[in-house]
Amino acid sequence: MENIYYLLIVCLIFWYFIYLRKISEYARSHINTYCNSENLQFISLARKSSRMNFDKKHGPHWVSIFEFEFSGDGESSYLGEMQLRGYKVDGVNMPPYKIN
């Protein structure tokens, strides 16, 4: 009987890694779209944290924070931050940056 529990734990860990990879792909897609709409050059993306959260409005959900590097003038780079709630963008924070 304990083999079933081991199998369940392995399957949950496998699902978690696949889920995090899918969230990262959604984040890259959202950041690319955002940078194109703001005429920015997208450089890189990194996940800062992912955690399970619960509130009365949304119920249980995953909150992931990503840092992305971008450039407004093609010479300097800046770090912005994007928060995802599940697969949807919850907010984008960017510092002031130079433009052409």
Rank of each mutant, 00 (worst) to 15 (best):
2 E>Y: 09
4 I>T: 11
11 C>Q: 15
13 I>Q: 02
14 F>W: 09
15 W>G: 05
16 Y>D: 14
18 I>R: 08
19 Y>Q: 14
19 Y>W: 11
19 Y>P: 01
20 L>P: 00
22 K>Q: 14
24 S>Y: 05
25 E>G: 06
26 Y>P: 03
26 Y>L: 05
27 A>E: 07
27 A>R: 00
28 R>L: 01
30 H>T: 02
31 I>D: 07
32 N>L: 15
35 C>H: 02
36 N>P: 03
36 N>G: 02
37 S>N: 13
38 E>T: 04
42 F>L: 11
43 I>A: 04
43 I>S: 06
44 S>A: 15
44 S>L: 02
45 L>H: 08
45 L>P: 06
46 A>C: 08
46 A>V: 10
50 S>D: 01
50 S>L: 01
52 M>L: 15
54 F>Q: 03
55 D>H: 11
55 D>T: 11
57 K>N: 10
57 K>P: 01
59 G>L: 01
60 P>A: 12
60 P>Q: 00
61 H>Y: 15
61 H>E: 09
63 V>L: 12
64 S>R: 02
65 I>S: 08
65 I>M: 03
66 F>I: 01
67 E>V: 07
68 F>Q: 00
70 F>K: 09
72 G>Q: 00
72 G>M: 08
73 D>C: 03
74 G>H: 09
74 G>M: 08
75 E>H: 15
75 E>C: 10
76 S>K: 15
77 S>A: 13
78 Y>D: 02
79 L>H: 10
81 E>C: 08
84 L>P: 05
85 R>Y: 13
86 G>K: 05
87 Y>W: 07
88 K>W: 11
90 D>H: 10
91 G>M: 07
92 V>L: 12
94 M>V: 14
95 P>S: 12
95 P>T: 11
95 P>C: 09
98 K>F: 03
100 N>D: 12
100 N>Y: 11
